[in-house]
Simulated assay, not measured.
Amino acid sequence: MPVIESTYNPSFLFKNGFISTVYSGLFRQVSLKQERERLTLPDGDFLDLDWSFSKEQSNQVIILLHGLEGHGQRPYVTGAAKLFNDNGVDAVCVNFRGCSGADNLKYRSYHSGATDDLEAVITHVLSLKKYHSIYLKGISLGANIILKYLGERSDVPEEVKAAVSVSVPCYLQGSAEELHTLKNRLYHDRFKKHLVNRLKIKQKQFQDQLSIEAIKSIKTLTDFDDVYTSKAHGFKDASDYYTKSSSLQFLNTINTPTLIINALNDSFLSPECYPVKEAQNNPKLYLEMPKYGGHSGFIDKNNNYYNEKRALEFIKSMLSNK
């Protein structure tokens, strides 16, 4: 589909990508009642799912995926859940392996291309025999997982009606390079610190697979992906992981109505992460590139973010067109 012209125009302060990104990550608050369910995965590990519900009994549900080192209570996830709940749609916020506050059981955890766990969640939701319509929405890493899931297979359940991916690093190599630049040093170091701290905990449980010396060698996020992400998930190295897990290569085969929202001032994204050609060549793929928004910082009125309102609008429009 042609590229969608965006109407997002925040106040002057939040036209700054850094300010909107940091404000959204550190200061936004959302009040939402959630109920936790533990889902056992096919390999014996688990995911914790945080459910919230609309006031009326609903046969619609949205599955929400967080970003790197996020979880199911982050405001960029619960904000969407609350908005959809208020509009008659149940929501399940997925905590990736090890992200719910409880360490996962396996040496592997989660990564940008781990679509098997999303498939397990969708299978579980379908097994409830309650929902006729399933929607998907992801932020950053979670957004890449959704796009890859939709494009890599021909057997997407018919109940999956629409998807929205926001601030998506669909070309992982380019985004990794951007995160290592000086302008993103603050983000890079924060991510690396959290990841390495969690890896130290995992090393105590899996000493035969990971040494303290290997952890000490991690100086960058790419080092982390070389030392842990790639090895724990069946890739040769970080480059192989980025190549095989990037969703960009799967966009042409997506057959589910899907909206991508990537801000032009998102400092995490490389030029390849704005897939204009792919959107123009796939009638199911819609691309919106707001001038502002930073990385998942689409601040708007009444604590409802622009990307969340657009997700609701898009999904409603896709359903009405059928």
Rank of each mutant, 00 (worst) to 15 (best):
K15A: 02
G293F: 01
K284H: 14
V166A: 08
P169R: 03
N304L: 10
G70K: 08
Y187F: 14
I19G: 10
Y286V: 01
F12Y: 10
I218D: 04
E35H: 06
Q209K: 14
I146M: 09
F224G: 05
Q207V: 12
F12D: 07
G88H: 02
A143D: 04
N197H: 11
L182G: 02
L264R: 15
Y305T: 08
A114C: 09
L186I: 13
Y8L: 02
S230E: 07
A163L: 03
N59D: 15
I215L: 09
S58L: 09
S296Y: 01
G98S: 13
T243H: 12
L83I: 14
L264M: 14
N16D: 15
I145E: 09
F18N: 05
S175I: 00
G293I: 02
N303Y: 09
S6M: 07
I215E: 09
I261G: 10
F268N: 01
I139R: 01
S31P: 00
T253H: 09
T258M: 04
F191D: 11
D240K: 10
G174T: 12
K200L: 10
P257N: 04
L199G: 03
A81E: 01
D48E: 12
S154T: 15
K183H: 14
Q209E: 15
H233W: 03
R185D: 09
P257I: 02
L13Q: 10
L179V: 10
S320G: 04
N59Y: 04
S175R: 01
K316D: 09
G25K: 05
T243K: 13
Q73M: 12
S165E: 03
N282D: 08
P283K: 05
H188N: 14
W51M: 05
S165W: 03
S296D: 14
V164G: 02
T222F: 03
N197P: 02
K291S: 10
S58V: 01
R74T: 12
F191G: 08
L41M: 14
F53L: 10
R108T: 14
